[in-house]
Write a protein that binds this DNA or RNA. Structure first.
Length: 270
DNA sequence: ATGGTGGTCCTACCA
Protein backbone atom coordinates (compact mmCIF):
# COMPACT_ATOMS: atom_id res chain seq x y z
CA UNK A 1 0.00 0.00 0.00
CA UNK A 2 1.09 3.56 -0.65
CA UNK A 3 1.10 6.14 2.16
CA UNK A 4 1.58 9.85 1.53
CA UNK A 5 1.95 13.14 3.32
CA UNK A 6 1.38 16.58 1.80
CA UNK A 7 1.24 20.04 3.29
CA UNK A 8 -1.22 21.60 0.84
CA UNK A 9 -1.14 25.17 2.26
CA UNK A 10 -4.91 25.71 1.92
CA UNK A 11 -7.05 22.80 0.78
CA UNK A 12 -9.53 25.28 -0.71
CA UNK A 13 -6.92 26.58 -3.14
CA UNK A 14 -5.17 23.27 -3.68
CA UNK A 15 -8.16 20.95 -4.17
CA UNK A 16 -7.61 20.75 -7.97
CA UNK A 17 -3.93 19.92 -7.51
CA UNK A 18 -4.80 17.34 -4.83
CA UNK A 19 -7.45 15.56 -6.89
CA UNK A 20 -5.13 15.55 -9.91
CA UNK A 21 -2.35 14.03 -7.82
CA UNK A 22 -4.73 11.45 -6.28
CA UNK A 23 -5.83 10.41 -9.77
CA UNK A 24 -2.23 10.17 -10.97
CA UNK A 25 -0.79 8.40 -7.93
CA UNK A 26 -3.72 6.54 -6.30
CA UNK A 27 -2.24 6.49 -2.78
CA UNK A 28 -4.12 4.39 -0.23
CA UNK A 29 -3.69 6.80 2.67
CA UNK A 30 -2.88 10.51 2.56
CA UNK A 31 -2.11 12.82 5.47
CA UNK A 32 -2.76 16.49 4.72
CA UNK A 33 -1.53 19.50 6.66
CA UNK A 34 -2.45 23.19 6.59
CA UNK A 35 -5.93 22.56 5.25
CA UNK A 36 -6.94 25.96 6.72
CA UNK A 37 -10.60 24.93 6.69
CA UNK A 38 -13.26 24.66 9.33
CA UNK A 39 -14.68 21.13 9.48
CA UNK A 40 -18.04 22.35 8.12
CA UNK A 41 -16.22 23.49 4.96
CA UNK A 42 -14.17 20.32 4.39
CA UNK A 43 -14.66 19.15 0.76
CA UNK A 44 -16.17 15.78 1.67
CA UNK A 45 -18.18 15.40 -1.55
CA UNK A 46 -15.34 16.42 -3.89
CA UNK A 47 -12.99 13.92 -2.25
CA UNK A 48 -15.67 11.20 -2.30
CA UNK A 49 -16.00 11.83 -6.03
CA UNK A 50 -12.22 11.36 -6.25
CA UNK A 51 -12.58 8.02 -4.44
CA UNK A 52 -11.52 8.98 -0.92
CA UNK A 53 -13.08 9.06 2.53
CA UNK A 54 -11.71 11.51 5.07
CA UNK A 55 -11.37 12.37 8.72
CA UNK A 56 -10.33 15.91 9.54
CA UNK A 57 -9.66 18.36 12.31
CA UNK A 58 -9.60 21.90 11.07
CA UNK A 59 -9.95 25.53 11.98
CA UNK A 60 -10.40 28.82 10.18
CA UNK A 61 -7.35 30.47 8.51
CA UNK A 62 -4.54 28.44 10.12
CA UNK A 63 -3.36 24.86 10.64
CA UNK A 64 -5.79 21.97 10.05
CA UNK A 65 -5.06 18.30 9.40
CA UNK A 66 -6.84 15.49 7.58
CA UNK A 67 -6.39 11.80 6.75
CA UNK A 68 -7.76 10.42 3.49
CA UNK A 69 -8.35 6.72 2.81
CA UNK A 70 -8.92 5.42 -0.70
CA UNK A 71 -12.16 3.50 -1.27
CA UNK A 72 -11.15 -0.12 -0.71
CA UNK A 73 -8.96 0.62 2.29
CA UNK A 74 -10.58 -1.53 4.90
CA UNK A 75 -12.99 -0.45 7.62
CA UNK A 76 -13.58 2.90 9.33
CA UNK A 77 -10.91 5.07 10.92
CA UNK A 78 -11.03 3.39 14.33
CA UNK A 79 -10.43 5.55 17.35
CA UNK A 80 -9.91 9.06 15.99
CA UNK A 81 -7.74 11.34 18.15
CA UNK A 82 -7.64 15.10 17.55
CA UNK A 83 -5.90 16.33 20.68
CA UNK A 84 -2.71 15.54 22.54
CA UNK A 85 -3.65 14.27 26.01
CA UNK A 86 -2.69 16.85 28.60
CA UNK A 87 -2.22 19.68 26.12
CA UNK A 88 -5.00 22.22 25.83
CA UNK A 89 -4.31 23.58 22.38
CA UNK A 90 -6.82 25.28 20.10
CA UNK A 91 -4.45 24.82 17.15
CA UNK A 92 -5.51 21.87 15.01
CA UNK A 93 -2.19 20.10 14.42
CA UNK A 94 -2.64 16.39 15.20
CA UNK A 95 -4.93 13.66 13.93
CA UNK A 96 -4.65 9.94 14.60
CA UNK A 97 -6.74 7.21 12.97
CA UNK A 98 -6.53 3.55 11.98
CA UNK A 99 -6.75 2.09 8.48
CA UNK A 100 -6.73 -1.45 7.10
CA UNK A 101 -4.36 -2.69 4.43
CA UNK A 102 -6.29 -3.12 1.14
CA UNK A 103 -4.18 -6.19 0.28
CA UNK A 104 -4.64 -8.02 3.58
CA UNK A 105 -7.92 -6.53 4.80
CA UNK A 106 -8.69 -6.42 8.51
CA UNK A 107 -5.79 -8.71 9.41
CA UNK A 108 -3.32 -5.84 8.98
CA UNK A 109 -4.17 -2.48 10.47
CA UNK A 110 -2.01 0.61 10.41
CA UNK A 111 -2.18 3.30 13.05
CA UNK A 112 -1.59 6.65 11.35
CA UNK A 113 -0.62 9.78 13.28
CA UNK A 114 -0.66 12.93 11.17
CA UNK A 115 1.35 15.87 12.56
CA UNK A 116 1.57 19.49 11.58
CA UNK A 117 4.47 20.43 13.82
CA UNK A 118 4.70 24.01 15.07
CA UNK A 119 6.98 26.14 12.87
CA UNK A 120 8.50 28.10 15.75
CA UNK A 121 9.24 31.31 13.80
CA UNK A 122 12.77 31.87 15.20
CA UNK A 123 15.04 30.36 17.83
CA UNK A 124 14.18 32.00 21.15
CA UNK A 125 10.76 33.25 20.04
CA UNK A 126 7.81 32.33 22.25
CA UNK A 127 6.53 30.21 19.35
CA UNK A 128 9.84 28.31 19.52
CA UNK A 129 9.23 27.47 23.19
CA UNK A 130 5.71 26.34 22.23
CA UNK A 131 7.22 24.15 19.49
CA UNK A 132 9.62 22.36 21.87
CA UNK A 133 6.91 21.86 24.49
CA UNK A 134 4.49 20.60 21.83
CA UNK A 135 7.09 18.13 20.53
CA UNK A 136 7.80 16.82 24.04
CA UNK A 137 4.11 16.18 24.64
CA UNK A 138 3.71 14.57 21.22
CA UNK A 139 6.59 12.26 22.10
CA UNK A 140 4.71 11.06 25.20
CA UNK A 141 1.58 10.51 23.14
CA UNK A 142 3.53 8.56 20.51
CA UNK A 143 5.14 6.35 23.16
CA UNK A 144 1.63 5.45 24.30
CA UNK A 145 0.40 4.89 20.72
CA UNK A 146 3.38 2.65 19.96
CA UNK A 147 2.57 0.45 22.95
CA UNK A 148 -0.95 -0.10 21.68
CA UNK A 149 -0.25 -0.09 17.93
CA UNK A 150 3.05 -1.64 16.79
CA UNK A 151 2.15 -0.91 13.14
CA UNK A 152 2.62 2.80 13.70
CA UNK A 153 3.15 5.43 11.00
CA UNK A 154 3.88 8.98 12.13
CA UNK A 155 3.94 11.39 9.23
CA UNK A 156 3.48 15.01 8.34
CA UNK A 157 5.15 18.38 8.19
CA UNK A 158 7.72 18.15 10.99
CA UNK A 159 9.16 21.62 10.43
CA UNK A 160 12.57 20.14 11.36
CA UNK A 161 15.41 19.08 9.08
CA UNK A 162 16.69 15.79 10.52
CA UNK A 163 20.30 16.50 9.55
CA UNK A 164 22.50 18.60 7.27
CA UNK A 165 21.80 16.38 4.24
CA UNK A 166 18.27 17.77 4.39
CA UNK A 167 19.36 21.42 3.98
CA UNK A 168 20.41 23.04 0.69
CA UNK A 169 23.06 25.20 2.39
CA UNK A 170 23.67 23.89 5.90
CA UNK A 171 26.51 26.35 6.54
CA UNK A 172 24.38 29.38 5.69
CA UNK A 173 21.33 28.00 7.49
CA UNK A 174 23.42 27.14 10.54
CA UNK A 175 21.46 26.57 13.74
CA UNK A 176 18.52 28.71 12.70
CA UNK A 177 14.87 27.68 13.02
CA UNK A 178 14.09 24.20 11.59
CA UNK A 179 17.74 23.15 12.12
CA UNK A 180 18.58 24.17 15.68
CA UNK A 181 20.08 21.47 17.96
CA UNK A 182 17.13 21.53 20.41
CA UNK A 183 14.69 20.93 17.55
CA UNK A 184 16.82 18.10 16.18
CA UNK A 185 17.11 16.65 19.69
CA UNK A 186 13.31 16.77 20.02
CA UNK A 187 12.97 14.88 16.74
CA UNK A 188 15.63 12.37 17.82
CA UNK A 189 13.75 11.81 21.09
CA UNK A 190 10.78 10.81 18.93
CA UNK A 191 12.74 8.57 16.55
CA UNK A 192 14.50 7.01 19.57
CA UNK A 193 11.11 5.53 20.52
CA UNK A 194 11.77 3.13 17.64
CA UNK A 195 10.51 5.18 14.70
CA UNK A 196 12.53 5.28 11.47
CA UNK A 197 12.76 8.08 8.91
CA UNK A 198 11.56 5.89 6.03
CA UNK A 199 13.11 8.05 3.29
CA UNK A 200 16.56 7.36 4.73
CA UNK A 201 16.01 3.60 4.53
CA UNK A 202 16.30 4.04 0.75
CA UNK A 203 18.26 7.20 0.09
CA UNK A 204 21.40 8.33 1.92
CA UNK A 205 22.40 11.20 -0.34
CA UNK A 206 21.86 14.91 0.34
CA UNK A 207 19.89 17.19 -1.97
CA UNK A 208 16.39 15.68 -1.65
CA UNK A 209 13.91 18.26 -0.41
CA UNK A 210 10.16 18.46 0.22
CA UNK A 211 9.76 22.23 0.73
CA UNK A 212 11.01 25.27 -1.18
CA UNK A 213 10.28 28.85 -0.20
CA UNK A 214 7.97 30.70 -2.58
CA UNK A 215 10.51 33.54 -2.64
CA UNK A 216 13.77 33.96 -4.54
CA UNK A 217 12.90 31.29 -7.11
CA UNK A 218 13.94 28.76 -4.49
CA UNK A 219 12.42 25.77 -6.28
CA UNK A 220 14.08 26.53 -9.60
CA UNK A 221 17.41 26.83 -7.76
CA UNK A 222 16.65 23.74 -5.61
CA UNK A 223 17.12 25.77 -2.44
CA UNK A 224 14.99 23.47 -0.33
CA UNK A 225 14.63 21.59 2.92
CA UNK A 226 13.43 18.08 3.69
CA UNK A 227 10.98 18.65 6.52
CA UNK A 228 8.09 16.36 5.50
CA UNK A 229 8.71 12.93 6.94
CA UNK A 230 7.12 9.49 7.17
CA UNK A 231 8.32 7.69 10.29
CA UNK A 232 7.57 3.99 10.75
CA UNK A 233 7.83 1.73 13.77
CA UNK A 234 10.28 -1.18 13.98
CA UNK A 235 7.46 -3.61 13.18
CA UNK A 236 6.95 -1.95 9.77
CA UNK A 237 10.60 -1.59 8.79
CA UNK A 238 10.75 -4.87 6.89
CA UNK A 239 7.50 -4.03 5.08
CA UNK A 240 8.86 -0.81 3.54
CA UNK A 241 9.60 -1.30 -0.17
CA UNK A 242 10.12 2.25 -1.49
CA UNK A 243 10.16 5.88 -0.37
CA UNK A 244 10.00 8.93 -2.60
CA UNK A 245 9.50 12.66 -2.85
CA UNK A 246 7.26 13.57 -5.76
CA UNK A 247 8.51 16.94 -7.01
CA UNK A 248 6.06 17.05 -9.89
CA UNK A 249 3.19 18.94 -8.17
CA UNK A 250 5.66 21.69 -7.18
CA UNK A 251 6.05 22.42 -10.92
CA UNK A 252 2.30 22.82 -11.46
CA UNK A 253 0.46 26.10 -11.54
CA UNK A 254 -0.28 27.69 -8.18
CA UNK A 255 1.59 25.02 -6.20
CA UNK A 256 1.86 24.47 -2.48
CA UNK A 257 5.32 25.33 -1.16
CA UNK A 258 5.52 21.65 -0.08
CA UNK A 259 5.41 18.63 -2.36
CA UNK A 260 4.07 15.15 -1.50
CA UNK A 261 6.25 12.48 0.09
CA UNK A 262 5.34 8.80 -0.19
CA UNK A 263 6.11 5.39 1.28
CA UNK A 264 5.22 1.99 -0.16
CA UNK A 265 4.54 -0.82 2.31
CA UNK A 266 4.00 -4.52 1.67
CA UNK A 267 2.20 -5.80 4.75
CA UNK A 268 1.38 -9.23 3.36
CA UNK A 269 4.59 -10.81 4.64
CA UNK A 270 4.71 -9.19 8.08
C1' DA B 1 19.16 44.30 2.71
C1' DT B 2 13.96 41.98 8.28
C1' DG B 3 13.80 42.32 1.63
C1' DG B 4 11.20 38.52 -1.34
C1' DT B 5 6.01 35.33 -2.25
C1' DG B 6 1.74 33.26 -1.05
C1' DG B 7 -2.74 32.16 1.92
C1' DT B 8 -6.32 34.19 4.72
C1' DC B 9 -8.91 37.93 5.20
C1' DC B 10 -9.01 43.34 4.40
C1' DT B 11 -5.11 44.42 8.41
C1' DA B 12 -1.91 42.03 9.92
C1' DC B 13 -0.47 37.37 10.90
C1' DC B 14 1.65 33.14 9.57
C1' DA B 15 4.88 30.38 6.99
Amino acid sequence: MKIASWNVNSLKVRLPQLTQWLADTRPDVVALQETKLEDAKFPVDELAAAGYRAVYSGQKTYNGVAILARDGVHDDFGEVVTDIPGLHDPQRRILAASVGDPASGPRQTLRVVNLYVVNGKAVGDEKYAYKLDWLAKVREFLAHELERHPNLVVLGDFNICPDDRDVYDPVAWGADILCSPPERAALKAITDLGLHDSFRLFQAEPGHYSWWDYRQAAFRRNMGLRIDLILIGDALKSAATAAAIDREPRRWERPSDHTPVTLDLDLRTT
